[in-house]
């Protein structure tokens, strides 16, 4: 049991790390990784939703009729997303304003529904939590890493503090939409190179 828990948890960190290996949920990945802070904030919000929805879907897996399962999953996911939205609004207001529309859009993030459908609906609650937590942390790390590359090159800062000397000319392209695609592509390429060996 403990062994399979570790296995489910760690697969989200490397072997099936969401944006790079599963290539799912790219909308927030591309849109909010202008800075490390945004990326990690989005990642944590998604992790919370993922863990809660995985747990509930797994607990209810024998109750939910197969024909309306997607509708049921969406209700569960949307509820937790709204909870996250309200809590972020109450306690991390500036971050809430920056992430804006992308918080409610967690509802349609493929990873969340994907894990509910592909994993939580077939496995025990404990394994589902491990899976959700692993995927969530993997997602957060990916967003953080992408944010770090884009923020440092595009703005010359990491978490708001300058990392290069004062002569550094920001590579503004990186914080704009095309930069997100290029950066994601290069990181995918790098991960494939490492994974091949």
């Amino acid at each position: 049991m403990a062994q399979s828990m570790v296995k489910e948890f760690t697969k989200g960190l490397w072997a099936e790390i969401p944006p790079f290996r599963l290539v799912l949920g790219l909308c927030p990945v591309l849109a909010v990784t202008k800075s490390v802070e945004n990326g990690i904030g989005m990642g944590i919000a998604t992790t919370f939703v993922l863990v809660c929805s995985n747990l509930l879907v797994s607990l209810l897996r024998s109750v939910i009729p197969a024909k309306v399962r997607i509708a049921a999953y969406i209700i569960i996911i949307a509820t937790f997303v709204t909870v996250v939205e309200l809590v972020m609004q109450a306690y991390t207001y500036p971050l809430f304003l920056k992430l804006g529309i992308f918080i409610p859009l967690i509802v349609v993030n493929c990873i969340v529904l994907g894990r509910a459908e592909a994993f939580a609906s077939k496995n025990s609650p404990v394994l589902s939590i491990a899976d959700g937590l692993g995927m969530g942390i993997g997602f957060t790390l990916s967003l953080g890493a992408l944010g770090a590359v884009r923020e440092s090159l595009g703005n010359g800062t990491i978490l708001g503090s300058p990392v290069f000397g004062p002569e550094f000319q920001p590579f503004t392209f990186m914080v704009e939409a095309p930069g997100a695609f290029v950066c994601l592509g290069l990181m995918l390429c790098l991960m494939n190179l490492i994974g091949k060996k």
Binding site: P65, K67, V68, A71, A72, I75, I76
Partner: peptide, 10 residues
């Protein structure tokens, strides 16, 4: 059954 499950969830 479907109706009940969805109603209770909502």
């Amino acid at each position: 059954n479907m109706v009940i499950v969805l109603t209770v969830l909502s």
